[in-house]
Nucleic acid binder design. Sequence first.
DNA 1: GCAATGACGCTCT
DNA 2: CAGAGCGCCATTG
Length: 107
Amino acid sequence: MTSDTYRRIYSVVRRIPKGRVATYGQVAALAGLPGHARQVGYALHALAESTRVPWHRVINAKGEISLRSVVGGHHEQRMRLERENVEFDQRNRISLGHFGWAPRRRG
DNA sequence: GCAATGACGCTCT
DNA sequence: CAGAGCGCCATTG
């Protein structure tokens, strides 16, 4: 990580439970960086393949997977999500109402 | 320091 | 719910 900002983001992404997904803005807000949704995606972009951060549980506010730098990269994210019982609709989108992570500050 | 870029979000229609 | 336009700000060159 090149700065504390990234570390804050990774810390939140790791808190995402299995079978749930969170949006960039949500992660940013939980990381104490409201409005830095873009930086969240930017931070995940800097992640390595062997990272311990469940980056695949992070999607955009539309509930869809964002295009990655590499071609076919989003395909891997979807594969990982399906492995956690996360379903996609005909529009290749996830129902945030069902799979959206509902973070609670005190359990 | 300046200019350009980017795994995005929100509001209005 | 879906589509189009504007804003946000750290990172990079």
